[in-house]
Amino acid sequence: MLATTQNTTINMILLASTVSGSIPGNQLINSSKQRPSSRSCVVNSAVAMTNEVKRSCEFYDMHKELIPYAEAWSWQKDIVKKRKELIEREKDCSDTLIILQHHPVYTLGTRSSEAYLNFSMKNAPINVYRTERGGEVTYHGPGQLVIYPIINLRYHKMDLHWYLRALEEVVIRVLSSTFFIKASRIEGLTGVWVGDQKLAAIGIKVSQWIAYHGLALNVATDLTAFGQIVPCGIQDRQVGSIKGLLQEHVSPNQRGAENKYDIDDNQLIDITHKSLVQEFCKIFQVHLRHKPIPAGIAWERPEVLHSITEKGD
């Protein structure tokens, strides 16, 4: 059965005035119907804390910025080190949330196999980093929102499986509530899927119950870079993006000769970012405290990189 979206749903995303499309396999949820909760029983235990005082969370919002991976990685480890010192003094009173985009980069988990790289490490097309997170190789780049929660699980739930499912739940709710896209989990795999397309990859590291690294959601990502790797070591499935799903299901006659139904990447990033923050706060029951970008963190706007790439420099 085909599921259709109402015009008002896509108006949030597209520059055109009205759009009506359909996606097979019920991947888009009819906005006239009740939205599914997509809640798993394991995540409900966290949401049930609504009567408790919300934990403070320092929020570094750089969703419009491109941050070099090495800098963000070093920054995370520095925060974790300081948090451990605060725990020893019994003064750990907040979590941290970082949202950003990265320059193009491949990252591998601590036990990732180089067999999943379709190139030689000595002749890599872009920077490659082996990190201490779990999981196999993945790609980060412009148009992809990366979330790095640095969370003391002692104040949430000391269960790594719960934490992974909770991160997945954030994305599942974003796709459902904002885009009416029905996403799901796949038994035995980590991440968020729409059909056989993986939209969000998750890889974490936990040290003394402090979790860091996090998740990456393909919003308006150029997916061609995934062709140089076997993403997450999964051979028989694809990688997808929110933009790709929306574009696939706008009919050719609606696009028109002027391509007026193209999706604006910046608008899509902003809408997704807002929803991610809201759902993260609901799932983890935190109160955000906005913080400025720390001095010394190098960044630039995604459109600057796009301009340089077009020039071929």
Rank of each mutant, 00 (worst) to 15 (best):
S120F: 13
K81F: 11
K122I: 10
L175G: 05
R39A: 14
F280N: 04
K64L: 08
N259T: 01
E279M: 09
V170L: 11
R185K: 13
T190N: 03
E187I: 06
F284K: 07
T50W: 07
F179E: 02
P292M: 03
G188I: 03
K311L: 13
Q278T: 15
Y155R: 15
N11T: 09
G203C: 04
L160T: 07
A257E: 06
N44G: 15
I99M: 06
L246R: 04
G135Q: 09
R255I: 03
I181A: 09
V239L: 11
S207C: 08
I67Y: 10
S45A: 12
S113I: 05
N7V: 14
K82S: 09
L160R: 05
S38H: 15
H290Q: 13
T224D: 15
G203K: 08
F179K: 08
N7Q: 11
L108H: 00
R130E: 00
I186C: 06
I186Q: 14
E187V: 12
I229R: 00
E187A: 10
G141C: 11
Y155W: 01
E65T: 08
E303K: 13
D222E: 15
L217N: 00
T107I: 01
C57D: 09
A72E: 06
T131P: 11
Q27R: 03
G109P: 01
N218G: 09
I283M: 12
